[in-house]
Simulated scan of single mutants.
Amino acid sequence: MPTPQDVLAPLTDSALFLTLTVHPGHESTVHDFLPDLGDLVKSVGFPHPGEDLHCVLGISSDAWDRLLSGPRPRSLHPFREIAGDRHRAPATAGDLFLHLRSTNPYPCFELARRVVTTLGDAVEVADEVVGFRYFDRRDLLGFVDGTANPTGGDAASAALIGDEDPAFSGGSYLIVQKYLHDLDAWTAKPVEERECSVGRRMLENLEIPDDEKAPDSHVTLTTITDPDGTERDIVRDNMPFGSLARGEYGTYFAGYAADPSVTERMLTRMFVGEPPGTTDRLLEVSTAVTGGLFFVPSADLLDDPPPLPTATDEPTGDGTLGIGGLKDR
């Protein structure tokens, strides 16, 4: 398998989530930057090995067509807005996404600064969120986040593409969302009601037994099981964030998967319900304000990317690309 990016890097105490849009006509600048990203990460991280700096870069469906010729990752598509009767997961702008992680905030900031400076007028920052560790890895709602993440080989199987799409093995699909919390409404609820909404005990961090768990709890709706009983996992690297000046308090969701449909089904169950109407109780106090789907290519592909598209590689408008009839899936 090609060398993956740092998708499976361990959780860190600091993170920075950076969404960029690429200005039309500047695709060559961004394309030329891709192989240089690894050296940029080393230039910041090498002098500070204890900071455990990691960088993951993802490319959206539209940006892929603009930046890279040849075949596409077979499950890459724009983020699809999910709208139920009461809740909505919007799709928002973003061509490139950088997920930066380190022990302290300053390496993330410095790497992000160098990326934006290097790309210059080619890009615009669409969104920037600084994440931080909160107590014993709790979110701002008071619950430990990420306890159910797979580990070891199970994490690699859940997050990394293998033989199912051999041209893009070692890659991953990243879905990101920014959620804002109404903390006043949340803390006004009794602890028992909060635990019922999440599906875990707040103090002990233990999952509520299935026969006691509410059908519309967050844990219930984000547990995906195939018809044969196989449970499907993703790798989450969520982080709390907040701003006193803006009165914003939230969770940044970052979910890596070998198959984006697993994450998409989780979100559909949360926002629409399965059956419809059985929506996630957390959405009563948490509102999604961004949404994006990005393909995270292997480090090898970033180091030696396909050429820029030519005129014949442009989308034809009928759902295909001018590269031998490959479907724009």
Rank of each mutant, 00 (worst) to 15 (best):
H26G: 01
F294M: 02
R80I: 10
R86E: 15
A155H: 08
R86H: 15
T310M: 06
T117I: 08
A288P: 06
E248C: 04
E274S: 13
R201G: 01
P35L: 06
L282N: 05
A148I: 02
A299K: 07
H54A: 13
T103F: 11
P2W: 03
E274Y: 04
L203P: 00
R137W: 10
E27A: 15
P73G: 06
R194A: 01
K42S: 13
C55W: 04
S43A: 15
H87E: 10
S243I: 09
T268S: 11
L301W: 08
A257D: 13
P47A: 02
E274Q: 10
R200L: 01
I161L: 12
T12F: 08
R200S: 01
G142Q: 11
P107T: 05
P150W: 08
P35H: 05
P49D: 03
I234Q: 06
A185R: 14
G291H: 04
A89Q: 10
E81W: 02
L293W: 00
H99P: 00
G273Y: 07
A185Q: 09
D259G: 00
G319Y: 10
S102Q: 07
P209D: 02
P305Y: 02
Y173R: 01
P73N: 06
C55Y: 02
L267F: 15
G38Q: 13
K327G: 08
P71W: 05
V116D: 05
H218R: 02
E314R: 15
G84D: 12
V123G: 09
A254C: 12
R194L: 02
L40R: 14
D154H: 14
R74T: 14
S75T: 10
G247Q: 06
D32S: 14
G229N: 11
S28A: 15
D210G: 03
E27C: 12
G324C: 05
E164L: 09
